[in-house]
Structures are given as C-alpha cells and as structure tokens.
Simulated scan of single mutants.
Amino acid sequence: MGLVANLVELADIEPSLGTEELHLFDVRWYLDGRSGHRAFLEKHIRSAMFLDLDTCLCDPSTVDPALGRHPLPDPKSFESVLTSFGVSKSQLLVFYDDQAGSIAARAWWMASAIGYQAALLNGGLSAASNSMFESGESPIRSMPRLPYTSSTMSWDPDLVISEPELKALLSQGNAILLDARSKERYLGINETVDPKAGHIPGAVSAFWRQNVDRRNRFKHPNEIAKNFLQLGIGPTTEKEVISSCGSGVTACHNIFTLQYALQLQARLFPPSFSGWCHTLGNEIET
C-alpha cells in the first residue's frame, strides 16, 4: 500500500470543520515532558480532538527497550482508537501540532498505513487565527486509551523495516538510512534523551526541520528536492530509502516530505536509534 502525502490549508478545510466530512486531530506532544493535553485544553482549533502520542500512537505496555521509546502499537488496536472517535475510511482525517507537523506526521503515517484518508495541516496550530480557537474538551471523548488486544494484523512490510533487514541492506550498500534528529544529536553532542549518544552506522543526517520554513509551513517541493538530492536521493535513486530518528516519530516527517516533494516511498524503521542503542552488540557512530 502506498502512502499519500496530503497537505491541506486551513482555509480549504474550514467550511468542513465540525461536519461529518472531516475529523481534525490535535497531536501536540513535547520531548521536554510538557503536557500536550494540557496545551490542548488551553487552546485548540475549533472542533479538534486530542490524540495522545504516548497512549494512542504507541504501545506503552511494551517492555522491550529494543523496540524503542515509542513502539508501534498493533494496527488493529490503533484502528479501534480511530473508530472510537466515530471516524470512517470515507472521511478525511487531518492532523496538526505546533511543531511543524513533526509529531502529527506519526499519526498521518499510522492512519494512512491502515487505509484511512489522512492529511497534515500546513502550518499547524499557527495557521489559525484567534477567532478559530476554543478551549476545553471537544464534544467527542478526547483521550481514548488503546485497547491492547492480540491480533494477527501487522504493519505493511512495504512501509516498515525490521532491524535484521536494515542491517542486511546497509551491509550490501543497498539503502540510504536517514536520521531525522538534529545534527547535534546525530553527532552525539548534548544527548539528553537516550542512554547512548551518536547514530546508527551508515545513517546520514536529515534533520526534519529542513523540510519547513520559519512559519512552520512546508517548503516548496523543488527546494525540498534539492536538499534531499544532496543526500543522494532523487528521481533516479535505486537504493531503498529508510527513515529513522530517535523513536520512530519525527522519522515520519521525512517520509511525508519525500512523498510530498518527490513521490518517493520511504520505509520506517520504528525502533530508530532508541531501539538500536539498546540492542547488545550494535555499534554506534559519532
């Protein structure tokens, strides 16, 4: 299944806010520990519902650190979360945050991967004027919990990659592994999140912030294409492109951007560096 990088403008979807045509989700989350839900309660775009990264977009019950800080939940469980909001695959799901889509892209990726029509809101929260904000909870329950159930349904192997397969592709020289973290964390400078510093051997730095401008809006596809071409990624790229980050969240921003600008489908390495550095014997570069 291919993903569609649907980028929408607030002016275009405003007439549909609060209707059955569209569901708007606020996916704010902060690496420094601030509460995204508290920020949502204080102010959010009209009709938006809160979708929590820690309880809805990852599986907090997973105890294996090799799966990373934000392990993907079972896709069937995630679909249960979406249906608890009353959404269907005939409706458009639009996701936003206040960090240029770096968190919302994870929700876009997950929803798209299981067949929903999903989009990112260009500019995120900053795209709205004061008259479009409201506070408090939305009428629909805003914080469902993942119903962790066993399921044989798994993520599409064309969209994700396992650690053994990643190692094989890298050793054969058949992959370009992107690291969406900041250049400092990629180099192992001032690492404050994971227990080890550095990056997966062979990974190239592709900070997700380079995909957007100062207004948190996506750059023109031509400018984005030039940036990725410097990393060896272009229309004629034969190597497989893999996206990683710290825990499989901002990596989705690069996946969205590559699809948006180049119509190139990259695969996600869900554990990313936080999972890699917990696996005994894995080397780390700085």
Rank of each mutant, 00 (worst) to 15 (best):
K226A: 15
H44N: 08
P235I: 06
W155G: 11
K196D: 06
P71W: 08
G115I: 00
S150Q: 09
P221C: 08
R209N: 02
S129V: 04
F218Q: 15
P71G: 07
S131H: 08
S84D: 13
R145F: 00
E238D: 09
K196S: 09
V27W: 06
T250V: 05
L17A: 04
H23W: 00
T237Y: 03
F228H: 06
A128F: 10
T257P: 08
D213R: 06
P271N: 05
A39E: 13
I103Q: 15
G18I: 04
S205P: 11
S274P: 11
S129C: 01
R181A: 03
R185T: 13
L125A: 10
V8R: 12
P75D: 15
Q117N: 11
Q91E: 14
F50T: 12
I255M: 09
N222W: 02
F40S: 13
R69H: 07
Q91A: 09
S171E: 12
K226G: 04
G136H: 08
Y148D: 02
S150F: 13
D32C: 07
P235G: 05
L187S: 13
L231T: 13
K167T: 06
D12Y: 07
T55E: 10
Q265P: 08
P195K: 05
Q172T: 04
A251Y: 06
V4T: 11
V94T: 07
T236W: 03
S182C: 03
Q172I: 03
T257D: 13
E9M: 02
G68W: 04
G173H: 09
L231G: 03
R185D: 13
D179T: 12
E223T: 07
I200N: 02
A11F: 01
D156W: 12
M1A: 14
E184W: 01
A251Q: 13
W109N: 10
A39H: 14
N174S: 07
N282M: 03
H220V: 06
R145L: 00
R46Q: 15
D52M: 05
R38K: 15
A203H: 06
T192A: 15
M132H: 14
K167Q: 14
P75E: 12
I114G: 15
F269P: 07
R267D: 05
H44W: 12
A48Y: 10
R34S: 05
G234A: 08
T55K: 01
E9V: 01
P144H: 00
V27G: 04
I233H: 10
P73K: 00
G173R: 04
S247M: 09
T62A: 10
N190M: 07
E9G: 11
R69I: 03
T237I: 00
E42S: 14
I103F: 09
R209Q: 15
C56H: 00
G198M: 04
A113N: 04
I161C: 14
L280A: 12
P271R: 01
M132L: 15
E42V: 12
I284Q: 02
S150M: 08
H199N: 14
A206Q: 14
F256P: 03
